[in-house]
Structures are given as C-alpha cells and as structure tokens.
Design a binder for these strands. Sequence first.
DNA 1: TATTGTTATACTCTATAACTATA
DNA 2: TATAGTTATAGAGTATAACAATA
Lengths: 149, 149
Amino acid sequence: MKKTIPAVDDVDTSYLESLIGYNARRAALAVIGEFLEQMAIYDLKPVEFSVMSVVVHNPGVTSRQLCAALNILPPNLVGLIQILETRGLIERKPHPHDGRAVGIHPTDEGEALMMEAEVTAKELEMNVGSKLTPNQVQTLVTLLQKIYL
Amino acid sequence: MKKTIPAVDDVDTSYLESLIGYNARRAALAVIGEFLEQMAIYDLKPVEFSVMSVVVHNPGVTSRQLCAALNILPPNLVGLIQILETRGLIERKPHPHDGRAVGIHPTDEGEALMMEAEVTAKELEMNVGSKLTPNQVQTLVTLLQKIYL
DNA sequence: TATTGTTATACTCTATAACTATA
DNA sequence: TATAGTTATAGAGTATAACAATA
C-alpha cells in the first residue's frame, strides 16, 4: 500500500470558528480595521479615540482612572497624553484634592473634534451593523459585556 | 463667579460601551487572557494553538493557506512554523502538485497534544460561557461571524 | 508605607520591501 | 509574469522595574 501525501483544497477552520475567543478577536480586528480608516480624517487611532472620549465625558479624570477604565498600563498612557496635549486636544490641571494627581481636561478644540468623531464612530457602527439588525447589535453588545465586565 | 476644577469619582464609559468594536476588543482580550493561562501547560500561545489546530484538521495545508485562513502575514508565519517544527509538533513535506509549496503535517506528538489542548480550550469556553447560557454562546458566535466573515 | 505619574527599557506583534525558486 | 516561501527590518503595542513627589 502506497502512502500518498495529501494536499488541501479548502481549509477547514470549523473548530476554531466554534470558539468564542477566536471569533471575538477576528471580529474586533475587522471592526478596528474599519475604524482606523474612518478615523484617519481626525488623525485618531482607536486608543486615542478611547482616551479622548473618556476625557470629554469625564473632565478632570486622572491618568490612573483612565488606565483602570481602558485597561492601559500607566507607562503606556504617558506618551498618549503627551501627544494629545501637544495637539491641543487636552490640557492638564492640578487635581483639586490630591497633590499627586493631575486632572485631564478637554480643550474646546478637543471637545469639538470629539463631537464630530463620536458621530462618525456611530455611523461606522451602523455600517458594521448593516450586516446585523439593530436588535442583533444590541444583543451582541450585551453578550460581549457579560464576558469582560 | 468662581471657576472650580472638577474631580471625577466614578468614570463614565457608557459611550464607549455602546460601540461594537470596543466591546469586541475588551471581550477578546479577556478571553485570550484566560486562554494564555490555561494553555501554558501545553506551552501554546493563542496563535500557535490556532496554527496547530488548522494543521491537525488539514494535514498537508500550505503556509499560504494558513496565512489566508488565520489572517497572518507570510513573514510572520515563518517563525511560528520553525518553532512548532523544532518542538516536533509538525513536519514539512513536499507538496504533491506544486514544487514551490510545502505541505505542513502534524506529527503523532502534535496530534496527541492537540487532542488534549482542544478539549482544554472547549472547557475554557464553558468557563467563559458560564456567564452565558449555551444558547447565548451560540447566538454570540453567530453574530460575531456575521461581522468578519 | 502606599499611590500618582514618570522614565527607561525590553519583549512581542504586526507590517513592508526584497530576494529565490518554481509555476 | 505571477506565486510560495523566506530574510531582514521597521514600527506599533504591551510589559516590568525603578524613581520622585505626595498621601
């Protein structure tokens, strides 16, 4: 009996596609790819958008609070803050109670930019969600949050 | 009228939590974190697990096919293949039709390892999914696939 | 003694250009 | 001319240790 070396026509990924983690990662990368393209007009990467969004909705938030909320390590936030400050989108003011901390505040320019950017992000959600009904989008978000929150 | 510098008690992330991309990324990172811990006993990182899984279910698959299936760039797969080959989990044989290509095959050891690892991965899914009913897990996977497939 | 913000640094992941062998 | 696999390398993302200032 002769041993034949098999070739593969169509790759079967059905096992991986049964795993939550695999699907969540692939979906996240797809959406973030879209996001990168759409947000290029604002010169905002996903992390920068996240930071700006939290700052706009929480004026005076501290670095530590940002790190905890967005799961960023403190040393890695420093550079982000510096970039956003240099661009005039945020400013740092002394914290009212805690002399160690610094409050991060949006500038008028930062707020104006995020007003537009958050609308664009919502539109992008609609595009991604065009493959899903509004109900399905809501279900998806709810289920994802059950996992990590 | 006196200007007060505000402080933030509880950080409001409700806007971000309404975005599919944000939730998908956070959920993926949470699951992958669990995965990293559980798979440490097999010395398999998520990407290595993915590659091994596809190889086991598709003996003779080529590098290009792996790259396409797993969304990995060819130069970045080379090192992975070398590691797995050095560990004796896969072996490379000439492709039956195409002299340029190389077929990647699981060794007996590789198959045995993945038999166990895939069971562990499924158990891990159950843990993650313990926050979800089996029905919800199925719904979640289906919705995620609609986004990236 | 603990925490905030920071620097320096290392490690991993991802991306691009260019080469060779074969189709 | 196009494709499979590879090399070298650059850039982004993520990680730990250690320090000064303040609590």
